[in-house]
Design a protein around this nucleic acid. Structure first.
Lengths: 215, 215, 215, 215
DNA sequence: GATGAATGAGCTTTCATTCAT
DNA sequence: GATGAATGAAAGCTCATTCAT
């Protein structure tokens, strides 16, 4: 088992100095194709079972080339995860801007489907987010960061809420979003569509309550 | 990475014939201590990083002895997971029996805390449930089985609901229960207590709606 | 480069818990043959260039078998070195007992040739002693230990000397012994025999002085 | 282990054509800084553990630039070592000129400290000298060359000695000089100062004998 | 049944060296 | 000449599993 195995050590990205940045056009292309390859590999196999060799092979690169830019398995996973989080943050920013002019039920729908859609497009996200679920001490975890984004969307539609109240509700909303992903990926559920609608209804209910709360 | 790694092979518990049952009291004690050792090892390291050698060592047994009872890593994990699921089923059975005489808010509280408590007592459960989240074709997954248990509790308090309706609602309730676990284990949340209460409120709301739906 | 590389880290045998002791006859045989193989490999290639794979191959063992008993390269080197040091200590003990009844020139000869002979019989000793020349903090280095042995021989023939005086002279004697090894192994010296004699003369001179010093 | 590792291959400096000489001032500065960087890297890590990449980095040069001037690791080590040997030769030349007018005890002191001082100023010397201790067939080893220098100093103060006699004594003196380095670097010796003095005394004794021998 | 030795495929990582720009 | 990307053999080490005693 590698040192990077998430539960065997608490260190994780502790030592992960940033992956060496490419300084040439060729390098940029390589990094991009390596990240993409890593994405498919992690999605296919999960973090632990994914191998550096396989990632390099998928990218059509030599193992040495992979290590040139990502000196550890942790680091390529970290880089990938960071890009995912940034994309998600971007999505949330847009949602925050659109939110005030949005019908509550539409907002509920958007929120409920944000993670679901993202996961469909970037299937490695779940595997990595799970592996890197705990933050380093002194760091902000992915979960925490995304919760902050949700909070800012919520603040945009329910400005009258206290920050503490927003934080609590953002945490709940985040869980509903995650639940939607779980449901969506659970092939053992006969009527997934119905459950998804139910979840969306719950989200709407919950948002309504938040918005109406002090009115 | 091991060949047994869940995602790297499609085999999983495929070959898992039942772990050989011990014939004598001596054997039962061994099996029990091996399972316990596996539990702490999996909880500490996660499925992938846990090693058969470490499990045997924790149980004070030799590696050969471990393999006598559990011929693969999969099988000891499977046996452990099964025992956990049985314990949970037992909990749900009790809850189902108590449910009709329970206040809705009390039932909400019980449900919300069932997984939370169980995870506190059996920390390996989460690690294994995650690893073995997907069922073998033709098998029933853990998730599915637990959802069935939840459904039966729900049926006990809302007998007027159609089976399909119950199935959908059970799926949602299961997600709220999982959310509770997530919240409870997320140290990055400032006011975990408040979020837990909020979640319990949501559960109550949802149960109320179910029970009242056609009345 | 390995973490065990002597100069890149100050740690060396720091983490080297003792190599796992064999508990079966077969294991003992294996350990013996592995140590012997390691001896020839280290002698041939030096510590850094020696490979674990080559050691296992020389012993006719699988790489796994080697690691069963010696979990790191450091540890097999350490075990080997320790056995060498013990053999040398034994030699010194015998010399100490014989010393009082020995002619000074004979003692000089014996001392001068002790390391030379040992190195001829155990060619890996030099390579390892060099690599592990620095002691861990709180540990006693090989050099130090052997110096102690020399001191005890000296004390046996010059009992009137103060301990501090003995320590100083033991250090010098040790250097002459090492010099003898160097000379003996230096093929670029035309008249090695003559130089060896010269060195032996120097040793005799130095011993004489020590013995006569306060008489 | 690298292919260049000295003991693993018989090649050594065999292929070491001279490192390409730079044509311009710019190049000279580069070479100088590369050599200096190599010096600190070898001193820090030892020959094996030192990496070409690290040397280039220390010099603020690219790896390609390093290889432009020193096409192999062997060659940069060789060039460095040669510069060291030349410096030492220079020191010996001066000593030879001063020797006739020097008190024997002063000469003893100078000789004893020559290597000690040099090593303090050029800590990589020891690491490299060790690595390249054996000469290529047909070549003259460093040790041999320095022994020649010592011989010429000795000849300056003891002109009546036969060349063969001088060669033998030079070999012994060289060993005492090396012993001084060893003592000086051995932190496990309580009274290093006393041992150094003792060694100097031995050197004086030995020189006296040489000078007086046929007078 | 218990024990612990044996196995070897496979993993992550390193680094001297080469090459295209 | 400088740069940094590319390469891949090879190293140390792990661990599920098998087998002889």
């Amino acid at each position: 088992m590698s040192m990077a195995s998430q539960k065997s050590t608490g260190t994780l990205r502790a030592e992960s100095g940033q992956a060496k940045a490419p300084r040439r056009a060729r390098g940029h292309a390589r990094v991009a194709s390596l990240l993409e390859a890593a994405g498919t590999e992690f999605a296919d196999k999960g973090y632990d079972a994914a191998t550096m060799t396989a990632i390099a092979a998928r990218a059509g690169a030599s193992i040495g080339s992979l290590y040139q830019f990502f000196p550890t398995k942790d680091q390529i996973a970290g880089a990938l995860l960071e890009s995912y989080v940034n994309m998600l943050a971007e999505t949330f920013h847009k949602l925050r801007e659109a939110a005030p002019s949005l019908d509550v039920s539409l907002l509920a729908s958007r929120l409920t489907r944000t993670f679901v859609k993202f996961r469909a497009t970037h299937p490695a996200f779940a595997a990595l987010a799970e592996t890197y679920s705990d933050a380093l001490p002194g760091t902000i975890s992915i979960r925490e960061r995304l919760r902050g984004e949700i909070a800012s969307v919520l603040a945009a539609v329910a400005p009258q809420l206290e920050p503490a109240e927003i934080a609590v509700r953002a945490a709940v909303i985040q869980q509903i979003m995650k639940a939607a992903v779980a449901i969506n990926g659970d092939t053992s559920i006969a009527s997934r569509k119905a459950v998804m609608d139910e979840l969306e209804g719950l989200m709407r209910l919950y948002l309504d309550e938040a918005i109406a709360v002090t009115r």
